[in-house]
């Protein structure tokens, strides 16, 4: 396997799907010659032309709504939403329109569209360009939600998303665009199915269940635990909807201890849902309280002195993991 960046992996996935299926097109703000502010899409307009890589005006509700209409009528749009924070602008189109077409029509209509956007703080982008809003859309039945954690995941999940007949929101971690990792050769097409979590490490003492950027935190925390003589299961959730409950529960039933990590706000977030299912369905296997690590319940601050501490990190994860394993968690 070669090593490429997350950004290249996304670019390849889109290019391959555009080549494969002429009904696929992509639009968004500054996606063509500019290739997005993150340069993820550079080179695509040169190959596929402005008919398929389409620069839109700065009108998020408009072009998301139009993508719904286009998806209803025989095409498979990929929409680039420049920042995850802009989801708030498109809520009606995404949650009232895209998510409900199949259901409201009794299964007669479908909306095969992909909304690519991003998440992640610590880029010093402050409160309106740093949010991780996956829980917001995962809450709405009818939408699927994918969270790639590596270049390989980014490519495999995005290709699956394009081929899915439902609206899929895929969150890329904007800090990860330059991260490198192994990705299969283009001729070895890899589609990563939705609803199958990925166990990255196997251990006995604790389960670390994580999404997107937090998978890396979990992996490093598992390293830290190894140094202390403990081992952890590390599970990449991959898709919040559909959620692979079985893999998570099997791991927790084995270890009896779990930390759930996700970069969205802690309250009412993805970690809460996963923790709740664990408490509900693996209760008698739990040997320690279920711990959740999400972002602090504050708007993301600008100053580096303030921002970094608001997202889960390796040190705190290890510290808490050791407390759980050693039975040192203060009782309520």
């Amino acid at each position: 396997m070669r090593t490429i960046t997350f950004s290249q992996a996304v670019n390849e996935a889109i290019a391959e799907e555009l080549r494969r299926d002429p009904t696929v097109f992509l639009w968004g703000e500054d996606v063509a010659e500019a290739g997005t502010p993150f340069k993820v899409l550079s080179g695509l307009v040169e190959e596929f032309g402005p008919e398929r890589i389409i620069d839109t005006p700065i009108s998020e509700p408009g072009f998301v709504g139009m993508a719904v209409g286009a998806a209803l009528t025989g095409t498979r749009p990929i929409v680039d939403l420049m920042f995850g924070d802009f989801l708030f602008l498109v809520m009606d189109q995404l949650c009232n329109q895209a998510a409900k077409q199949s259901y409201m029509s009794g299964g007669k209509l479908k909306v095969p569209m992909v909304l690519r956007t991003n998440l992640g703080a610590t880029r010093r982008s402050a409160a309106q360009h740093s949010q991780s809003l996956q829980a917001l859309v995962a809450h709405i039945p009818g939408l699927k939600v994918a969270l790639p954690s590596s270049p390989r995941e980014a490519k495999g999940l995005l290709k699956s998303a394009v081929r899915d007949d439902n609206p899929v929101v895929i969150f890329e971690d904007k800090l990860m665009y330059q991260a490198k990792g192994p990705v299969p050769e283009p001729e070895e097409e890899e589609l990563i199915p939705f609803g199958q979590a990925n166990r990255l490490q196997e251990g006995e003492d604790l389960s670390l269940v994580a999404t997107s950027s937090m998978v890396q935190v979990a992996e490093e925390a598992a390293e830290g635990l190894r140094a202390e003589g403990y081992s952890a299961d590390v599970i990449d959730v991959r898709t919040l909807v559909p959620l692979d409950e079985d893999t998570i529960l099997a791991s927790v039933r084995k270890t009896g201890r779990v930390i759930v990590l996700d970069e969205g706000h802690q309250s009412y977030g993805a970690t809460a849902e996963i923790a709740s299912r664990i408490a509900d369905k693996a209760f008698y296997h739990l040997d320690a309280p279920v711990t959740r690590f999400g972002a602090w319940d504050v708007p993301v601050p600008f100053s580096p002195a303030l921002e970094d501490q608001t997202v889960p990190d390796v040190a705190r994860t290890v510290e808490r993991a050791l407390q759980l394993i050693r039975g040192e968690v203060a009782r309520a």
């Binding site: 709504g65 719904v68 209409g69 209803l72 025989g74 095409t75 009232n96």
Partner: peptide, 16 residues
Amino acid sequence: GSTGIATGAAFSAKYL
């Protein structure tokens, strides 16, 4: 609510 959908349907008619 359907203004985007209709305009998108027009887009796909043209695209296809």
